[in-house]
């Protein structure tokens, strides 16, 4: 089985995001970029499936600016076999919407015919939590979102999902789309020799036009602003004082 892993280049998890003073977006100049952490978990899961013999080949795919090839090299260094980059914009501030990404991925799926697509449940930039579900809809495939555990059983996958109030296990027919939640696994670090090897792995470059997909946005961003702040209160000196304050406030 071939596994397709879509990955997104986003602002690094540890970077403090700043809104541009003119309200046109967040500052992306000279900011460290990395692979979306949930996608890292998806890459790791694909590699584990390959190590267990459930997958033969892992194809990583990224859609966005040309610089996303760095993100793909990271996936290759972790253990993906080859990569596809769809250069959809030159502007680092333009986010390609989940619907357009899903349409492009559907075309890649048509060409590559994977048995499984596994990707992060959400990207930590636009926080949409949508691409996997949209891809499954377009393909008419089953979806298993927010996965905490994935087992391949012949032509089905058994997936335990993280839902409100606990866990839900479902069985989906393959091919399917799985989206990775936080506790699915702990992604490995790429070793130096593997980073060197990744430079020689194949990375194919495409454009949306190659697939005949229109990526123009459906949503127009009118404005981006800072959230309302919250003022710091007071420090209490003891548990007694805390209890007293909470009683005064009428919350206990």
């Amino acid at each position: 089985m071939k596994v397709l892993v879509p990955v997104k280049r986003v602002i690094d998890y540890n970077v403090k995001v700043r809104v541009r003073p003119d309200g046109t977006g967040v500052d992306l100049a000279n900011v460290k970029m990395s692979m979306n952490p949930f996608d890292e978990i998806a890459v790791e899961e694909a590699i584990r499936l390959k190590e267990k013999g459930a997958a033969e080949e892992i194809v990583a795919v990224s859609i966005g600016v040309r610089q996303a090839q760095e993100t793909l090299r990271t996936a290759l260094a972790m253990g993906a076999d080859r990569a596809i980059l769809i250069v959809a914009t030159d502007d680092v501030h333009q986010d390609i919407e989940p619907l357009a990404v899903a349409k492009l991925l559907a075309k890649v799926v048509e060409a590559e015919k994977p048995g499984l697509v596994i990707m992060g449940k959400q990207a930590i930039d636009n926080d949409m939590n949508a691409t996997g579900q949209m891809l499954a809809a377009i393909l008419g495939w089953p979806q298993a979102t927010f996965a905490g555990e994935v087992t391949i059983e012949g032509d089905h996958a058994l997936v335990t999902r993280e839902v409100d109030g606990g866990l839900q296990t479902i069985r989906v027919r393959l091919p399917a789309v799985v989206t990775a939640d936080l506790r699915l696994n702990e992604p490995r670090y790429a070793s130096l020799p593997n980073i060197m090897k990744a430079k020689k792995k194949p990375l194919e470059e495409k454009t949306p036009a190659d697939f005949g997909v229109d990526v123009s946005p459906r949503l127009t961003v009118l404005k981006t602003r800072e959230p309302e702040g919250r003022k710091a209160g007071i420090k209490v000196k003891s548990v007694d004082e805390l209890v007293e304050k909470l009683k005064e406030a009428g919350v206990i």
């Binding site: 995001v17 930039d125 949503l219 127009t220 981006t224 602003r225 959230p227």
Partner: peptide, 16 residues
Amino acid sequence: RPIYAGNAIQTVKSSD
């Protein structure tokens, strides 16, 4: 809607 873990609030207009 919030983006970037609530670090920014975006106003979006849908043409759908």
